[in-house]
Lab assay of single mutants.
Amino acid sequence: AVSDRLIGRKSVVMEAISPQNSGLVKVDGETWRATSGTVLDVGEEVSVKAIEGVKLVVEKLE
Rank of each mutant, 00 (worst) to 15 (best):
V39C: 14
L56D: 01
S36G: 05
G43Q: 03
N21L: 11
G43V: 00
E45F: 13
G8A: 02
S18Q: 04
G43M: 03
D41T: 10
D41W: 11
V25S: 01
N21G: 09
V2Y: 11
N21Q: 14
T38H: 13
V2Q: 11
V27H: 02
V12K: 06
I17P: 02
S3N: 11
R9Q: 11
I7N: 04
V2F: 12
T38L: 08
I7G: 03
W32F: 14
R33Q: 14
K26Y: 14
G23T: 00
T38F: 10
D4F: 10
G29M: 06
L24I: 10
L56Q: 01
W32G: 01
R9D: 07
Q20S: 12
V42K: 06
G53D: 06
G37P: 11
S22K: 03
A34G: 04
E30H: 10
I7R: 04
R5V: 07
S3D: 09
A50T: 06
R5S: 10
S22T: 13
G23S: 01
D4I: 11
E44K: 04
V12H: 06
E44P: 00
Q20G: 14
A34W: 02
G23H: 02
S3G: 11
A50C: 10
I17K: 00
S22A: 13
L61P: 07
T31D: 07
S3H: 13
I17L: 04
V48S: 01
V42F: 04
G37L: 13
G43C: 08
G8F: 03
E59H: 07
Q20D: 11
V27Q: 02
K55T: 15
N21P: 02
E45N: 08
S47C: 15
A1G: 11
L6A: 02
A50W: 07
E52S: 10
I7F: 05
V57S: 05
T38D: 15
V25M: 02
G53F: 03
L6K: 05
R5F: 08
V54D: 15
E62G: 12
R33D: 08
D28R: 05
D28T: 02
G8L: 03
Q20C: 15
V42L: 06
G37Y: 13
T35Y: 06
V39S: 12
K55F: 15
G8S: 03
G53E: 04
E62R: 10
R9H: 09
A34R: 00
I7A: 04
V13F: 00
D41P: 08
S18Y: 07
I17D: 03
S3I: 12
G23N: 01
V57H: 07
K10D: 09
V58I: 03
I51F: 07
L40I: 11
K55L: 15
V57G: 01
E62W: 12
I51D: 02
P19C: 07
R33W: 10
W32M: 05
A1R: 08
G8D: 06
G53L: 03
L61Q: 08
V2S: 13
T35C: 12
S11F: 08
G53Q: 03
V48K: 00
K10L: 14
E59C: 08
G23A: 01
P19S: 06
K49M: 13
K26Q: 12
E30Y: 09
R9Y: 08
V54Q: 14
L24S: 10
S36K: 00
S36P: 00
I51W: 06
D4Y: 09
K55G: 10
V58G: 01
G29F: 05
V27P: 02
L24H: 05
V42A: 07
V2W: 13
P19Q: 05
S18R: 07
A1V: 11
S47M: 15
V25Q: 00
G53A: 03
V42W: 05
L6E: 04
K55Y: 15
L40H: 12
E59P: 00
S22Q: 09
A34M: 00
V13R: 00
V42C: 14
T35H: 05
E15W: 06
A16M: 11
E59D: 08
L40V: 07
S36T: 02
S11E: 05
V27R: 00
V39L: 10
V13L: 03
E52Y: 09
V46N: 00
R33C: 14
R5A: 10
I51M: 07
T35K: 08
T35E: 07
G53S: 04
I17C: 06
V58D: 02
E62K: 11
T38I: 09
V12P: 03
E44Q: 09
D41E: 14
V54T: 14
R33V: 15
E59T: 08
T35R: 05
L6C: 07
E15L: 10
V12R: 05
V13D: 02
K10C: 15
V2K: 11
R5Q: 09
A50P: 01
K49C: 12
W32V: 02
S36E: 02
V13I: 04
A50L: 06
S36Q: 01
K55A: 13
S47P: 02
A1I: 11
V25N: 01
V54M: 14
R9F: 09
S3R: 12
V57E: 05
I7D: 05
V25A: 03
V39R: 11
L56K: 01
L6F: 08
E45I: 15
G53P: 03
A16N: 06
V46T: 04
D41A: 13
G29Y: 05
N21K: 15
G53M: 03
K60L: 07
V25R: 00
V46S: 02
K55I: 15
E45G: 05
A1Q: 13
G43T: 01
E45Q: 10
G53V: 03
E52G: 04
V46L: 00
V12G: 03
V13Q: 01
T31A: 07
E45D: 07
S22P: 14
V54H: 14
V57D: 01
V39P: 11
V48M: 00
Q20H: 12
M14G: 02
L40R: 02
R9L: 12
K55C: 15
Q20E: 12
E30L: 09
P19L: 06
S36H: 01
A16I: 09
G23R: 00
A50Y: 07
A50M: 07
R5H: 11
S47G: 07
V39M: 11
V25T: 02
L6Y: 07
D4P: 08
E44S: 07
G53W: 02
E44V: 09
L61D: 08
E45C: 15
E45M: 12
K55N: 14
V46W: 00
E52A: 09
S3F: 13
L6H: 04
G29A: 06
L24E: 04
G29T: 05
T38C: 12
K60G: 05
G8I: 04
K10T: 14
A34N: 04
K55D: 08
